[in-house]
Design a protein around this nucleic acid. Sequence first.
DNA 1: GATGCCAGTGTTATCGTCAACATTACCACG
DNA 2: CGTGGTAATGTTGACGATAACACTGGCATC
Lengths: 339, 339
Amino acid sequence: MHVRPTIRDVAAKAGVTDMTVSRVVNRSGPVSDAVRARVERAIEELGYVPSRIARGLRSRRTHTLALIVSDITNPFFTTLARGVEDAASDREHLVMVCNTDESEEEEIRYLEMLSGQNVDGVLLVPAKGAEQARALAKRRQLPLVILERRIPESEHSIVHCDTRAGARSMMQYLLGLGHREIAILASPIGIATSDDRVQGALEALEGSDANATVFHELLSRDTAAKGVERCLGMVPRPTAIFALNNLLTIGALRALRMHGARVPEDISLGGFDDLPEPLLERPFLTVVAQPAYEMGRAGVELLIAEISKPTSAPTEIVLPLELVIRGSIGPPPNSAPEG
Amino acid sequence: MHVRPTIRDVAAKAGVTDMTVSRVVNRSGPVSDAVRARVERAIEELGYVPSRIARGLRSRRTHTLALIVSDITNPFFTTLARGVEDAASDREHLVMVCNTDESEEEEIRYLEMLSGQNVDGVLLVPAKGAEQARALAKRRQLPLVILERRIPESEHSIVHCDTRAGARSMMQYLLGLGHREIAILASPIGIATSDDRVQGALEALEGSDANATVFHELLSRDTAAKGVERCLGMVPRPTAIFALNNLLTIGALRALRMHGARVPEDISLGGFDDLPEPLLERPFLTVVAQPAYEMGRAGVELLIAEISKPTSAPTEIVLPLELVIRGSIGPPPNSAPEG
DNA sequence: GATGCCAGTGTTATCGTCAACATTACCACG
DNA sequence: CGTGGTAATGTTGACGATAACACTGGCATC
């Protein structure tokens, strides 16, 4: 039933009141050296650890944060979560992890639970626009930091990347290699991150003679395969595919293999969001990578700062994206090596 | 500062006492239909959610579990964590995730924090033997379930696989294909899981004319490469390598590629612990797979059962292992196709 | 019609901790 | 020598919820 010594046990053992023990533990008032020593010994001997829950009831701080993501199993979120946990641990906080599978209902359900749980603050990678979630957090004055996804006019702080610029740089890289017909595999319209990336990608085309076709409605590895099939049937056939998230990238790669298309000899493939290098049999994909770990850390720091001084205007932290060049993108196949 | 309506706010609005509200919320006593309706409306209008922290102080149940693993970033643990979270969520529990990086100190530190946090129970994938952790949990009467790793004579319940049998079946598979010189890449001696797997692997050799060489002290992808190098230099050269965890497997695969050895044509490679299929560009490795997700779910169910009736003798749940046959193992290279 | 039971509600105390306010004792100062 | 200040401790009550118990009134039972 989980019994622990209480502050009163310590007090009794040291022959003082619980208040004095509290002062020793929290350095919240003057205590004579003799008493301090007695109390500390009693704490040691009993293995006393203050109950954060009782403390939380009184002080309204539980030293607990929550991280809400769509699926911890997605390596981007796994890495993010590790960053969150490390930063929280450094500051003596614990982290609850919640998976929503992109469901706004789950998002709300968790937020309610967490609010009831008296977490000090929440890191949220929003499903869709997270309107309800944000409203709820605001109503409850629950500190909330948004991660990865841009929310327009949010009254909450946010840590993200300039994902539009990232998409643009991938496209510029492709254009620079000579690609002129490019297919873009995107999520359904309405998912902000995907929309931003599409926009960035299209921006890169302005003033060029290249052409891009955007396939929407792609949610998973399997639907990515369909996009690839349609893409391979096009005339003129795209010489490069840009997949806007890591699962789509994998899906595209597998579909290309299945259709016998060599990457990058026959067709180039670029992705968004890196896969954890330690797990890959061979690091191969050229991608625009978000600094997931750092994003987690930065989110925690921002969140804890806001918890301690519940201030002020929302902050926006923009982290740099990196174009990680590996082997999956080459020049277009029929680009006669000129000169 | 995170303000929420309290049970008293609801009571006032409904014109009853907080006790009556509590009865409505928890169905813990008779309430007339009229009053119940009033209270429910008040709850609705105020958006009242009971404070689990206050509730926890009184009832000693916080509906919070913790999962301690070495590194959530290892896909085995990621999947395990997802199973834990799903099962917990089904039962309205929240989960704290803690990373120890195999450090016993961290393990203890977290356990202390968690106990102070009044979690209801802990799921632990132990670093080493976890003696201190187990002792602490026992002293605090903190429900604890051990996952994945076998602890001899543990007074705690445990969910794991028959990892020895798994290793044996991989070896039998290799022997069946004709391999007679097999290298085994293992972790340092003293890590129970690895030791068990080694033992199982060697058991499979009894009564056969095959020979195995065990390389210990391999902790990561990088050290795996060293093992592979030594292995390639051996005379007679092993025709198959069996790596006892997923990182070693990846490391071995990369090292083999680097040395120009084709898998499985020149040398076969078998692994332990699967990699998440959705992330692989091509599912290729033949491995002994532990049901990570199910292990997480089973652990939660066991833990919650023990929390509600703090009983009895420890339970042991053994989950089945699966030999997932894919492409990385073939017959030994110079096995002349006879007949 | 007294007795007992039970549905429906309220009262009080408590979980472990800490904020706020006492209380004591000693010392400095004019 | 009284006044006031401060260091060191104690006392009380509150955080939000619920367990344990107490009360009220209606109805069945003999």
